[in-house]
Amino acid sequence: MLSRVAERIYWMGRYMERSENMARLVNVNSHLLMDLPKGIRVGWGSLIHISGTGKYFNRGDTDQADERTVVRFMLSDRDNPSSLLNTLSWARENARITREIIPMEGWELINNLYLEVKDNLSKSVARRERNRTLHTVITSIQQFTGLLAGCMSHNSAYDFIRIGRNLERADMTTRIVDAGSANLLPHLLGEEDVLEPYDNILWMSVLRSLSAYQMYRQHVQDRVNAEDVVTFLLQDALFPRAVSHSLGELESFLKKLPNSDEALRAVTGVRRRVRTANIPELLQNGLQEYIDHLQLEIADVHRQIAGTWFLPVTPLVESE
């Protein structure tokens, strides 16, 4: 397969995953809000922290930003490279370029999803409509994943999509863990004892943002608590959105590709660091630094992949 196509299709996988994650994040925060009593303010700004898009937010202090502003920024702001509209648009452009590689229905699905979301997004600031749009996004992307699994040859192109998806997924889960442990909690005003009863709800919402709540309950019998949640999301080998699992998937797809030594070395390194982490200790001290480091290593995995298989330079070609 062509190097240029490998690159485009990898990014299509990443952007589709990112779109789903964006939709989940906004959705979960909207639900969380309804479960908390009046007077406890949920930090909408934390969504901006999680997605790492603070530098594109130009409407003042992210911590003070209200729901409408943040939701609009996350969903439809053209200046925010990770807004849902932009990530879907990039997924669509990459799918358009690789249209001859993925099944025809796959392209139609992405194309339709983008057009539908674009038409409905301005209405989606209101909670009711928002819920429906985000639900459409999540189910359509799941449908896309299923369509490829069922209708596309499991060839290198398919591997590159899954590599993109799992790398993006691992990255997003580290961000959510980071936000859950560092950003989300302090945004609730009030003292420890006010907070205490809602601690549970908050960690549940972290799990829900990754559709992990049910699987977590099956796996961990104890009540929802920080240590178990963080351990589950980072180290569980079986849950698809746990960092360790995503990296394991990544490793198995990379092994199928030619010349994969460098990329494999990078990914096994991160995976070892995730599996051997002492979570209770990190929760006491240094979780944030640890996660920052993980994210840098994940970025390095991307660099190795790009260096091995993509075109050395991709000049943007304009026609006459």
Binding site: L2, R4, L311, P315, V317
Partner: peptide, 8 residues
């Protein structure tokens, strides 16, 4: 078949 651009 492959769809190529000049840079490929």
């Amino acid at each position: 078949v492959e769809l190529v651009e000049g840079c490929d």
